[in-house]
Design a protein around this nucleic acid. Structure first.
Lengths: 148, 148
DNA sequence: ACTAAATACATTGATATCAATAGAAATAGG
DNA sequence: CCTATTTCTATTGATATCAATGTATTTAGT
C-alpha cells in the first residue's frame, strides 16, 4: 500500500530550472528592487514610475487603457493611484463625456517628480543593459512582450 | 520663465517601449494570472506552487537559501509561509543545529496538494512554451537568469 | 571565557496584486 | 422610450512584497 504521494527530487529540480513563470517572477522581484533602490531618493517605486510615465500624455487617459498598458488588473490600478493622489502627484477626475469613467493626469508637482526620476531611470537602465550580452536586450523585450 | 517641467511625450513612448523593468513586471503579472487561474482548482497560486516545490527536497532547507532561490526578501518568505502553515501543508520547525534558524518541510497533505498541482503545471507550461517561437524558451530562461 | 560583530528570523507598516462583488452610467434591442 | 445588457470603476478581503527595525543565537577576536 503506497501511503504517501512523493514527487521525486529530480522533478523539483526540473520545475525549478524550467518554469518560465518562476523565472519571470524572480527577475521581476530582482529588477523591482534594483529600480526601487535607484528611485528611492525621489520617493518613487518602479511601479509608480511606470504608472506616472504612462500618464504623461497629451490627453488624460481613462483607467482601462492604462491598466491594459501595464498589464494589471483594474482594481490594482485603482489601488496604485491612491498614494499618488494623496501626495498630490496625480489627478483623478470624472470624464465629462462618460460619467462612469475617470481621466488620469499628472499634476505639475507630479511632472516635476517624474522629471527628477527620469535621469535616474536612464542611468539605471543603461547600466542594466550593459550587463546583458550584446543585443539581448531587444530580444528579451520582444520575448517578454509575447508573454504579456 | 519656464514655469513647468514637461517631459516630452516621445520620451514617455521611449520609456514605455524600452524599459526592461516594465516589460518584466508586465510579463510577471500576465504569467502569474495564467498559472493562478490554472492552479486555482487545487487551491494554490503560482507563488505558492513554486515555494512548495522548492521545499520538496531530501533534507528540509532553512529559510535563507529558499528565499535566495526564489529571489525574494526573507520577510516575504516569512509571510508567504503563513497561509501554507495554516492549511497544514508546510511545517516550520526549529533547526536543532542552529536555534536561530528554521527548517521548512512539506506535510503529507502538502505533498498531496503538490502532486495534484504538478500535472496542471505541466499542461500549462507546455501550452505556454508552444506559444513561443521555436527555441526561445531556453534563451528566455537564460536571459531572465542573468537579470535575477 | 567574554565581548563585539555577524547571522537568521520575526514583526510592523506601507504598497501591490487580484478575485469577488457591487454601483452607476452608457448602450443595445425591442 | 424602456428594459436588459454591457461597460467602467470602487470596495472588500486575502495574499505578496519589501524597508525598517528588533530579538535571539552564533561566530570571531581577544
Amino acid at each position: 500500500m503506497s501511503n504517501s504521494i512523493e514527487i521525486p527530487f529530480s522533478t523539483t529540480l526540473l520545475v525549478r530550472d524550467t518554469c518560465l513563470c518562476l523565472h519571470v517572477q524572480r527577475a521581476a522581484r530582482a529588477l523591482a528592487r534594483l529600480f526601487d533602490d535607484a528611485l528611492r531618493p525621489v520617493g518613487l517605486t518602479n511601479g509608480q514610475f511606470s504608472l506616472m510615465m504612462s500618464l504623461n500624455r497629451p490627453e488624460p487617459p481613462p483607467m482601462g487603457p492604462v491598466a491594459n498598458l501595464l498589464a494589471m488588473d483594474q482594481t490594482t490600478l485603482t489601488a496604485a493611484l491612491k498614494p499618488l493622489q494623496r501626495r498630490g502627484w496625480v489627478n483623478v477626475t470624472q470624464n465629462p463625456k462618460d460619467k462612469r469613467g475617470r481621466l488620469l493626469s499628472l499634476t505639475p508637482e507630479g511632472k516635476a517628480v517624474l522629471a527628477a526620476a527620469l535621469p535616474i531611470w536612464e542611468r539605471t537602465h543603461t547600466t542594466l543593459e550593459e550587463t546583458l550580452p550584446g543585443g539581448s536586450g531587444e530580444r528579451l523585450r520582444s520575448e517578454l512582450q509575447a508573454l504579456a
